[in-house]
Amino acid sequence: MVNKTDKKLSLQKVRAHIPYYFMLLPGILYFMVYKFYPMYGAMIAFKDLNMLDGILKSPWADPWYKHFATFFKSPYCVELLTNTLEISLVKIVLGTFSAIVLALLVNECRNSWLKKVVQTVSFMPYFLSWVVIYGIAFAFFSEGSGIVNKLIEMLGGEAIPFFTSNSHFRYVLYGTHVWHGVGYSAVVYLASIVSIDTELYEAATVDGAGRFRRIWHITLPGIRSTIITLFIINIGNILNAGFDQIFVMYNEQVYSSADIIDTWVYRTGLVGMNYELGSAVGLFKSVLGFFLVYITNRLARKWGEQLW
């Protein structure tokens, strides 16, 4: 008797699963064609590409690590790695922190006009290209004519060479990064905050909890899942420190603090159609990135917030 019911139940279970697999089908097809299939291109990192032979028939690089060596042999390799990691890490921390703070501020604001305006206005810079942002930043921070520096000089100080000094340039990168992205990032946190059960807040207020306690004990834990998920993803991207921004804003005088892996690969790879180098460095970044995601995910397991 028990066996029959068991079988019936498990058959039902299997039948129940089928619609889900149908739902997954289009996505799986998409990933197969446009993501998994092209992965054979990773071979390029190990070959001397000759497109007349095609990727598959191109000769293998000799030695196999030849293109990886191009990067690691560069006298600037260590500097590139440190710059990339440092800049990325600070951007992740600053970015996450500022986006959460903005989302909280907007959420706690009781004036609906102010709320709407801040959201829309903070969202706008995301649409400006870095070329434009450089022009704006220059108008504010240039050594000769920047508004900020004029203020500093009026107060009796010396103008700060933000764009040409290694000790100051990173502040420009961080500042413009936050200005550019905080509104955009905050949207995701806001969506999470909004879905927290309001009854929790009501209960807490009745219990006598003030603003900060409510935020600390309800809001933040409520979006914990989002924070951790986004953090894991950002860590995976840690070797991408923001090529578009840095490429537009940097110059020879700040190379030693701002030259990152991607800008170096761009300059080196563009000369001579060096796809192999781009592929090798890309592979290196992917492996390292995935490794970091894996570790961070395991840590996240402890809080039950793992990605998979």
Binding site: F36, G41, S286
Partner: peptide
Amino acid sequence: LPGVKFLTLMLVFTMMFNGGTIPTYFV
């Protein structure tokens, strides 16, 4: 759902690894 963990892992995998512009161009 059976396979959910695997599929999610695959999803994340494609976030980190890609074949590059050339094979994607061919596809």
